[in-house]
Nucleic acid binder design. Structure first.
Length: 115
DNA sequence: CGCTTGACAGGTC
DNA sequence: AGACCTGCCAAGC
Protein backbone atom coordinates (compact mmCIF):
# COMPACT_ATOMS: atom_id res chain seq x y z
CA UNK A 1 0.00 0.00 0.00
CA UNK A 2 2.48 2.58 -1.11
CA UNK A 3 1.10 5.76 0.36
CA UNK A 4 2.08 7.51 -2.84
CA UNK A 5 -0.49 5.41 -4.69
CA UNK A 6 -3.21 5.42 -2.11
CA UNK A 7 -3.02 9.16 -1.96
CA UNK A 8 -2.99 9.61 -5.71
CA UNK A 9 -6.30 11.13 -6.60
CA UNK A 10 -6.91 12.73 -9.94
CA UNK A 11 -3.84 14.41 -11.35
CA UNK A 12 -1.90 11.18 -11.93
CA UNK A 13 -3.20 10.67 -15.45
CA UNK A 14 0.10 11.96 -16.79
CA UNK A 15 2.39 10.69 -14.06
CA UNK A 16 1.90 7.05 -15.02
CA UNK A 17 3.91 5.19 -12.41
CA UNK A 18 5.28 1.75 -13.09
CA UNK A 19 2.47 0.10 -11.18
CA UNK A 20 0.06 1.17 -13.90
CA UNK A 21 2.39 -0.01 -16.65
CA UNK A 22 2.58 -3.42 -15.04
CA UNK A 23 -1.18 -3.61 -14.68
CA UNK A 24 -1.71 -2.65 -18.30
CA UNK A 25 0.66 -5.38 -19.36
CA UNK A 26 -0.85 -8.07 -17.16
CA UNK A 27 -4.34 -7.27 -18.42
CA UNK A 28 -3.14 -8.39 -21.87
CA UNK A 29 -2.42 -11.93 -20.73
CA UNK A 30 -5.14 -14.25 -22.08
CA UNK A 31 -6.77 -16.89 -19.86
CA UNK A 32 -4.82 -20.12 -19.68
CA UNK A 33 -1.50 -18.40 -20.32
CA UNK A 34 1.14 -17.24 -17.87
CA UNK A 35 4.26 -15.09 -17.83
CA UNK A 36 6.97 -14.76 -15.23
CA UNK A 37 7.79 -11.68 -13.17
CA UNK A 38 11.08 -11.47 -14.99
CA UNK A 39 9.49 -11.65 -18.45
CA UNK A 40 7.05 -8.91 -17.54
CA UNK A 41 9.91 -6.76 -16.27
CA UNK A 42 11.84 -7.24 -19.50
CA UNK A 43 8.90 -6.65 -21.81
CA UNK A 44 7.75 -3.53 -20.06
CA UNK A 45 10.03 -0.73 -21.14
CA UNK A 46 10.75 1.27 -18.06
CA UNK A 47 13.96 2.40 -16.42
CA UNK A 48 15.51 -0.59 -14.70
CA UNK A 49 12.22 -2.28 -13.90
CA UNK A 50 13.00 -5.60 -12.26
CA UNK A 51 11.03 -8.67 -11.30
CA UNK A 52 10.96 -7.34 -7.74
CA UNK A 53 9.03 -4.26 -8.77
CA UNK A 54 6.58 -6.35 -10.77
CA UNK A 55 6.09 -8.47 -7.69
CA UNK A 56 5.34 -5.54 -5.44
CA UNK A 57 2.95 -4.20 -8.04
CA UNK A 58 1.03 -7.49 -8.05
CA UNK A 59 0.49 -7.25 -4.32
CA UNK A 60 -1.79 -4.25 -4.83
CA UNK A 61 -3.28 -5.25 -8.14
CA UNK A 62 -6.80 -3.91 -8.81
CA UNK A 63 -9.64 -6.43 -9.27
CA UNK A 64 -9.53 -6.19 -13.07
CA UNK A 65 -5.92 -7.40 -13.24
CA UNK A 66 -5.41 -11.18 -13.67
CA UNK A 67 -2.48 -11.21 -11.23
CA UNK A 68 -2.63 -14.99 -10.92
CA UNK A 69 -1.26 -15.34 -14.47
CA UNK A 70 2.09 -13.97 -13.31
CA UNK A 71 4.34 -16.64 -11.80
CA UNK A 72 7.92 -16.93 -10.64
CA UNK A 73 10.80 -17.93 -12.93
CA UNK A 74 10.76 -21.56 -14.01
CA UNK A 75 7.04 -21.79 -13.31
CA UNK A 76 7.48 -21.54 -9.56
CA UNK A 77 4.69 -20.03 -7.53
CA UNK A 78 5.58 -16.92 -5.55
CA UNK A 79 7.12 -17.29 -2.12
CA UNK A 80 4.84 -14.77 -0.51
CA UNK A 81 6.76 -14.04 2.67
CA UNK A 82 4.02 -11.85 3.99
CA UNK A 83 1.02 -13.88 2.86
CA UNK A 84 1.50 -17.65 2.38
CA UNK A 85 -2.11 -17.91 1.24
CA UNK A 86 -1.66 -16.39 -2.19
CA UNK A 87 0.14 -19.50 -3.37
CA UNK A 88 -2.91 -21.66 -2.78
CA UNK A 89 -5.31 -19.15 -4.28
CA UNK A 90 -3.16 -18.72 -7.37
CA UNK A 91 -2.95 -22.48 -7.79
CA UNK A 92 -6.75 -22.74 -7.74
CA UNK A 93 -7.31 -19.86 -10.14
CA UNK A 94 -4.82 -21.19 -12.67
CA UNK A 95 -6.09 -24.74 -12.45
CA UNK A 96 -9.58 -23.39 -13.13
CA UNK A 97 -8.23 -21.95 -16.39
CA UNK A 98 -6.81 -25.27 -17.47
CA UNK A 99 -3.16 -24.55 -16.71
CA UNK A 100 -1.22 -27.75 -16.05
CA UNK A 101 1.07 -28.23 -13.08
CA UNK A 102 4.13 -30.42 -12.85
CA UNK A 103 6.71 -31.37 -10.27
CA UNK A 104 6.78 -33.71 -7.29
CA UNK A 105 3.94 -31.95 -5.56
CA UNK A 106 2.44 -30.30 -8.64
CA UNK A 107 3.60 -26.95 -7.43
CA UNK A 108 5.00 -25.47 -10.60
CA UNK A 109 3.32 -24.27 -13.75
CA UNK A 110 3.95 -26.18 -16.95
CA UNK A 111 5.84 -23.48 -18.82
CA UNK A 112 4.57 -24.67 -22.18
CA UNK A 113 1.60 -22.53 -21.24
CA UNK A 114 3.86 -19.55 -21.18
CA UNK A 115 2.80 -16.57 -23.28
C1' DC B 1 22.01 9.85 3.07
C1' DG B 2 21.97 5.05 5.07
C1' DC B 3 19.29 1.00 6.25
C1' DT B 4 15.45 -2.17 5.73
C1' DT B 5 11.93 -4.54 3.10
C1' DG B 6 9.91 -7.34 -0.41
C1' DA B 7 4.06 -11.86 -4.58
C1' DC B 8 12.08 -11.93 -7.64
C1' DA B 9 16.13 -14.60 -10.08
C1' DG B 10 20.03 -17.54 -10.33
C1' DG B 11 23.63 -20.02 -8.15
C1' DT B 12 25.69 -23.12 -4.57
C1' DC B 13 25.45 -27.01 -1.05
C1' DA C 1 14.32 -31.26 -2.98
C1' DG C 2 15.04 -27.50 0.60
C1' DA C 3 17.90 -23.91 2.77
C1' DC C 4 20.84 -20.36 2.07
C1' DC C 5 23.44 -16.46 -0.32
C1' DT C 6 24.02 -12.56 -3.61
C1' DG C 7 22.47 -9.20 -6.87
C1' DC C 8 18.72 -6.27 -7.87
C1' DC C 9 15.91 -1.76 -7.27
C1' DA C 10 11.90 1.15 -5.75
C1' DA C 11 9.87 2.86 -1.41
C1' DG C 12 9.57 4.21 3.39
C1' DC C 13 11.58 5.82 7.52
Amino acid sequence: MPASRVMSSSSDAVALDYFELVYQFVRLIPPGKVVTYGQAADLITRANLTARQVGSAMRWAPADVPWHRVVGAGGRLPVGKRDPQIKMLQLELLRAEGVQFIGRSFDRVDMSFCL
